[in-house]
Amino acid sequence: MNVKINLDQLPKEELFGQGNVGCKGCGGAIAGRQAMKVLGERTIITIPASCMATLGGNNRHTTWKIPFYHTLFECAPAISSGIRAALEAQGIKDVNVVSWGGDAGSADIGFQSLTGAAERNEDLFHVCYDNEMYMNTGGQTSSQTPYSALTTNCTVNGKKTNKKNMLKIMEAHDIGYVACASIAYPADLMAKFKKASSRKGFSYIHVLAPCFKGWGIPSDQTVEFARKAVESGLWELFEVEDGVRTRNYEPKLIPVKEYLTPQKRFSKITAQEIEDLQQQVNTRYGKVGK
């Protein structure tokens, strides 16, 4: 199924984002805004503890214009399942139920409820907006932190293990739709959200949403680095629909060094490690030579 997004026909209304209390240049807020443009107002969203939950509002103010449920850390997909069951009992069919976790709320702390909902093939979709750190609590290592990145608890040489491949794990659940997106490619991201919302059954979308603070880049470079991650080949834009894997974007394959070295979190990476990463990318994209 091909979904095309016409940027000129998107709704003008902002269902999320205006007046949010996130940092300036927040990648998560960009992901949320792009997603809400296609999901529309018939959507219920559940968010576990994460930056996305806090920037949704406090006290009597909220930036959301749709029902937003701030769940406990470990149970956003479980609560979404309950919401879907309640909607079904009332005979309401045209509502998207979305659970939206960070990398911790999806891959670490929230993983058990995510894998449970995927196994039950609930009619909802889970979004992991991945900033590759526990940014809401000050930038600790998560299982999604890439190799050699410095975090507030790996301060000497950085994390010395690889990033857990969540997309492969979710693919292994045999769910209908798994996709990987980046905020620097809004048309591609929105097409994936549209597709996930039009499908029955469980879908999983993994979005790269850089955190300028944790990555050690200027605030105006958030989107630029989300783009460089894709162009260098380290972040692949693809989708797996009913078992068929499609790569949605062929990167220009700029040297991975251009993506890694400007970021302060990679200041301890060695030349050999960069070379190894380049080799991995070259192998994945079947590129010969340099």
Binding site: L7, L10, K12, E14, F16, G17, Q18, G19, N20, G22, C23, K24, G25, C26, G27, A29, I30, R33, Q34, K37, I183, P186, P218, S219, D220, Q221, T222, V223, E224
Partner: peptide, 30 residues
């Protein structure tokens, strides 16, 4: 779509930036 705060709107040829909600991150200029 790149503005984190929804401060920019484009209507035909007119670009409006709502300075009440713009945090000045600079993504739009980049």
């Amino acid at each position: 779509l790149f503005c984190p705060d929804g401060a920019i709107s484009i209507e035909k040829e007119t670009v409006t930036i709502d300075l009440h909600i713009c945090k000045g991150c600079g993504i739009c200029a980049v």
